[in-house]
Amino acid sequence: MLQEITQHATRRKGRASLSNAAGRFDLDRSQVDDGWVQEPDPEVIPTEVRLETARSLISYNRSPDLPFDRSINPYRGCEHGCIYCFARPSHAYLGLSPGLDFETRLVARPNAAAVLRKELSAPRYKTAVLALGTNTDPYQPCERDHRITRGCLEVLRDFDHPVAIVTKGAMVERDLDILAPMAAKGLVRVGISLTTLDPDLSRRMEPRAPLPARRLAAVRRLTQAGVPVRVMTSPVVPGLTDHELEALLAAGAEAGADAASWIMLRLPREVSELWQEWLAENEPGRAAKVMARLREMHGGRDYDPRWGHRMRGEGRYAEMIAQRFKAACKRLGLQERTEPLRSDLFARPPQPGDQLALF
């Protein structure tokens, strides 16, 4: 069940998508008035947030490409608006466009913490690291008002449950009162995504994400508080940001990160067209080179979805990036693999109505 809840006026320059084509499951949106604004003003595009009552929260996967088998996402869509975001096609399942809709028509799940508490309390639940923010950013701007991510962290803290957070949002600093004690128990690790050090490129490519310097400041504050941080040089964009790889890793290490990872630019489904539109307007002189490199790594296609290939591609160029990354990590003392978070501390806290222990 969805309810319209907020609307904030913003300017077109704060959006990355240049189009708002219908999603693949909504080929004729003109037939149905679903309550969303159908044609946003081209100069003033609002951010709308609706509430969704979640029936379940933990999503499980069996992907061999991922280091976790379960995740939670408090929000659908992401106002950071990163044009390259691989999660954009997920908005099509809501009957919305992976283009502007993805970054302007958001869905919040205010009962997420309560649902998470219920799922962790189930007798059959088996503990393993829970990933937070794998599809859309848990610290995007609307978290400031809705505080759903914080509520979920409070539940995880109460259960002593391990969690790995992925974000571009500097708002993660707000929750240090929860994260630092969890880190002291070996229960949390944060990954901060860093795509470029160029503030102009970042603002055009990731229009509402904190600028690179601000993200590095967040790395520094988290690590100073004892929270381990992985700097994620993702995505590496061939012909556009690949030359920054060593500088990104060095900046992360200097800020206190102890680990690093990388993923090549991925263009699944509608993301390819959106990305190429963005390239044509923002980097026309590099567009052909960027796409040629990507296709070279994916057998002539814009994207190869096969497990084992989709994250990094294959061929000489992909191998060169992997070698550069490994050499830089070795030089900077950054780990590619880290010690596993603890799962042995998990305990279900007393629930209302529980019989008190006699001893």
Rank of each mutant, 00 (worst) to 15 (best):
L94I: 02
G81Q: 07
Y84Q: 08
A87C: 09
A114Q: 15
I83H: 07
T104C: 13
L100D: 11
C82P: 02
L106F: 14
A114L: 14
I72Q: 04
L116H: 01
I83P: 02
P98L: 06
P74T: 00
L94P: 02
R88F: 07
C85A: 09
I83T: 09
S121K: 15
F102W: 14
A122V: 09
A87L: 09
E79I: 11
F102Q: 10
L120A: 06
S121T: 13
P98A: 11
I72E: 07
F102A: 13
L100C: 11
L116E: 01
E79V: 12
R105V: 08
R88T: 06
A114D: 14
A92D: 06
T104L: 06
L116N: 00
G77C: 06
L100V: 12
L116V: 09
L94T: 06
A113D: 03
P98R: 03
C82D: 01
R88G: 04
E103H: 08
C85R: 04
F102P: 04
Y75C: 00
V115M: 05
I72C: 13
R88W: 04
F102T: 09
H80G: 00
S71F: 13
E119Q: 13
E119L: 10
L96Q: 15
L96V: 08
E119Y: 01
S121F: 12
A112R: 00
R76E: 15
C85Y: 09
R124Y: 12
N73A: 11
A112G: 12
V115S: 01
P74K: 02
S71Q: 15
R105D: 08
A108K: 00
A114R: 14
P89S: 08
S90Y: 11
E103M: 10
L120R: 05
P89V: 05
S90C: 12
I83S: 07
S121Q: 12
Y75H: 06
R117K: 14
G81S: 12
Y84I: 07
H80Y: 08
C85H: 05
A87P: 07
A112V: 08
S71D: 14
V107P: 01
Y125N: 10
R124G: 14
E103K: 11
G81L: 08
R117E: 07
R88K: 12
Y125Q: 12
G81P: 06
L94H: 11
F86Q: 13
E79K: 11
L96N: 09
R105C: 10
C85T: 09
E79T: 13
P98I: 03
A122F: 12
H91N: 14
P89I: 03
R124S: 15
G99C: 10
S97A: 04
P123N: 10
G95L: 04
N111M: 01
T104G: 05
F86A: 15
L120F: 04
D101Y: 03
P74R: 02
H91G: 07
S97D: 00
R109F: 03
P74I: 03
C85W: 08
S90M: 12
C82W: 05
P123E: 11
F86M: 13
C85N: 06
I83F: 08
E119M: 08
L116Y: 01
R105E: 14
R124M: 13
N73H: 09
G95V: 10
A112Y: 04
L120I: 04
Y93C: 14
F86V: 13
P123Q: 11
